Amino acid sequence: MAKRIGVLAVQGAFAEHEAMLSSIGAECRELRSAADLEQKPDALVLPGGESTVQRKLLMESGMLAPIKSWIEEGMPVLATCAGLILLAEHLSNDERTCFKTLPVTVRRNAYGRQLGSFITEAEVRHIGMMRQNFIRAPYIEAAGPGVEVLSETDGHITAVRYKKQLALAFHPEVGPDTRLHEAFLRMI
């Protein structure tokens, strides 16, 4: 039976995650309003995009509290870029946190504006070398107890796992490599 993945689809790069997950056999459902949460998925994707807009829309739509509960109850979640910011307990350069389920301190737009975007190859623990696309990306300044560091770029933490939360500063959904999404599905 296909795993049912709820993809936050209020703003950002949700379609790219849906395409990649569908290509490896998952069934995706877009989460746009509180009504979309009535059928609980097996796992959740928080895509890249603009974290302040996503946070505002989550609050206005009534989706923030139920999704936070799902994550706290152990629902597997894959968060990329803005999704990492939404999960973070602390932001070093912003007071507006969201779910606060991931014990890390994140720096928003750490690599600068859009012109500071770049692509690199780096090791991802348990996966191997991977192409990593950083688009106005954050990075993790500090990781709390129980957080497994999976990848670093230029001395900064760029991927972590905490319980069933897999959080990345980069965008694996924009390339052809499905290994991180496959690892996410194995968390279910």
Score class of each variant (00 low, 15 high):
93 N>R: 04
160 V>R: 05
143 A>E: 08
179 R>C: 04
142 A>I: 01
143 A>M: 11
93 N>G: 12
170 F>S: 02
186 R>Q: 15
111 Y>Q: 03
142 A>L: 02
90 H>Y: 09
161 R>P: 01
126 H>D: 15
111 Y>M: 05
94 D>N: 13
150 L>S: 09
93 N>Q: 11
167 A>G: 13
95 E>F: 07
158 T>S: 12
162 Y>N: 13
114 Q>T: 06
142 A>R: 15
187 M>T: 12
175 G>S: 13
163 K>V: 01
96 R>E: 13
185 L>D: 09
136 R>Q: 05
106 V>H: 02
144 G>T: 05
180 L>Y: 04
124 V>P: 10
134 F>H: 07
118 F>C: 10
125 R>H: 06
122 A>Y: 03
91 L>Q: 05
115 L>T: 07
179 R>A: 13
157 I>L: 09
157 I>R: 02
97 T>Y: 05
161 R>D: 03
169 A>Y: 08
121 E>Q: 14
104 V>W: 10
145 P>C: 04
89 E>D: 13
128 G>Y: 04
123 E>C: 01
146 G>A: 07
108 R>L: 09
119 I>C: 13
179 R>S: 12
180 L>V: 15
166 L>V: 10
173 E>Y: 05
138 P>E: 12
128 G>L: 03
118 F>T: 09
143 A>L: 12
180 L>D: 09
137 A>S: 14
86 L>V: 03
130 M>C: 14
178 T>P: 13
176 P>I: 10
97 T>F: 08
135 I>F: 07
134 F>M: 11
146 G>F: 12
90 H>F: 10
127 I>C: 02
93 N>T: 07
88 A>P: 00
134 F>Y: 11
131 R>I: 05
110 A>R: 03
185 L>K: 01
183 A>C: 04
94 D>T: 04
163 K>Y: 00
182 E>C: 03
183 A>R: 10
148 E>W: 03
98 C>Y: 09
173 E>P: 04
138 P>G: 07
99 F>S: 06
160 V>T: 07
180 L>R: 06
126 H>A: 10
120 T>V: 13
159 A>Q: 12
163 K>N: 12
110 A>P: 01
185 L>A: 03
144 G>K: 00
89 E>C: 09
84 L>A: 10
131 R>C: 13
149 V>R: 02
173 E>W: 02
137 A>R: 09
173 E>A: 08
152 E>N: 05
127 I>L: 13
164 K>L: 05
112 G>Y: 02
142 A>P: 00
156 H>Y: 12
145 P>M: 11
122 A>Q: 06
100 K>P: 02
102 L>H: 04
149 V>F: 01
113 R>M: 05
110 A>M: 00
186 R>E: 15
149 V>W: 05
109 N>K: 04
93 N>C: 04
166 L>D: 11
146 G>T: 00
112 G>M: 07
181 H>S: 10
153 T>V: 15
173 E>Q: 08
176 P>M: 13
125 R>T: 08
138 P>N: 12
93 N>H: 12
115 L>R: 00
92 S>V: 14
179 R>L: 10
145 P>D: 15
139 Y>F: 15
146 G>V: 04
